[in-house]
């Protein structure tokens, strides 16, 4: 190396800078995506928080009523007056409704918990190394994060095969899946279907995301992976989603392909090696 001519090291420097710029772009696209999602996630959280909070207040008034009854046990002069109080507080209703109130509130808290942990799974910014990961779990986290963008546009069906752990940077794979899901939802006009399939094929793992949306024209299909190519109005799309997805999959030594029929729908297929080939300098 010491013998290397100046231009050589200059080139190395250029390469390093290019690599750094690429990473920054990746990071900022991710932050932009998270920002876009934040509004949707807020919506997802505000609903359960809304009813759990209100339920707690109803619970308080139920308890006040019940205590009125139990306190009266000591002071009431006859059984009849206790019965009157019991009648008065609509005991049967409270008794029955308490179960529902608690079950529904628990469901709400679970929902918030799932969203928060999905956000965490999703945004592992620090995780930059290849590690064996559970692709299906990644897809589920991603679905939780984008649920709000999807549920009003499509029914999501999963056909998951048995997958081995895949050596990858899972946060980046999640990001690719998110881009594909959001694109699919955007391509659907009223209400459609999005199918997510996974399967093992030899030593690669296949992920397919298929939608029943508008489809992509012959003219456009060759351009969709270009940076900044978008058919969406300003403010809706930057045209970076697929080009970054392509970069990520390439870095994982995988492939991303697309099939589309205008007016019928589109299917994106990702193939990832389960094990990364060992780079010569690594061994």
């Amino acid at each position: 190396m010491s013998k290397a001519a100046i231009p050589q090291s200059e080139q190395e420097m250029m390469n390093a800078r290019l690599e750094q710029a690429r990473r920054q772009l990746l990071q900022s696209e991710k932050l932009a995506a998270i920002g876009q999602l934040a509004a949707g996630v807020a919506h997802e959280i505000n609903n359960p928080v809304g009813y759990v909070y209100s339920n707690l207040q109803s619970l308080e008034s139920y308890l006040t009523d019940l205590f009125r009854l139990t306190d009266a046990v000591d002071s009431a002069d006859s059984l009849d007056s206790l019965k009157a109080i019991k009648q008065n507080i609509d005991y049967e209703f409270v008794r029955h409704d308490l179960k529902d109130l608690l079950a529904e509130s628990r469901e709400g808290i679970e929902r918030v918990k799932t969203i928060i942990s999905a956000m965490k799974d999703f945004s592992h910014i620090e995780e930059e190394e290849f590690k064996p990961a559970d692709i299906q779990r990644g897809i589920e986290s991603t679905l939780n994060v984008v649920n709000n963008e999807l549920k009003y546009k499509a029914e999501v069906t999963r056909e998951f095969g048995d997958l081995p752990p895949v050596e990858c940077i899972i946060s980046q794979i999640n990001q690719v899946v998110m881009n594909l899901l959001v694109n699919a939802a955007h391509a659907i006009d009223d209400f459609g279907e999005i199918r997510i399939r996974t399967r093992e094929a030899g030593d690669t793992v296949i992920i397919e995301i298929e939608d029943t949306g508008r489809g992509i024209s012959q003219d456009n299909i060759n351009r969709i992976f270009e940076p900044f190519f978008t058919t969406k109005p300003i403010g809706k799309g930057t045209g970076l989603g697929l080009s970054l997805s392509f970069n990520i999959i390439e870095k994982h030594n995988g492939r991303i392909d697309v099939e589309s029929a205008l007016g019928k729908g589109t299917c994106f297929r990702i193939a990832l090696p389960a094990k990364q080939p060992r780079a010569p300098e690594d061994s």
């Binding site: 009813y51 209100s54 339920n55 207040q57 109803s58 109130l101 709400g108």
Partner: peptide, 15 residues
Amino acid sequence: DEPNILSSLRRLLKP
């Protein structure tokens, strides 16, 4: 569209 919201509002308005 969320049934749990409806039940909590129902509780709130019952009295």
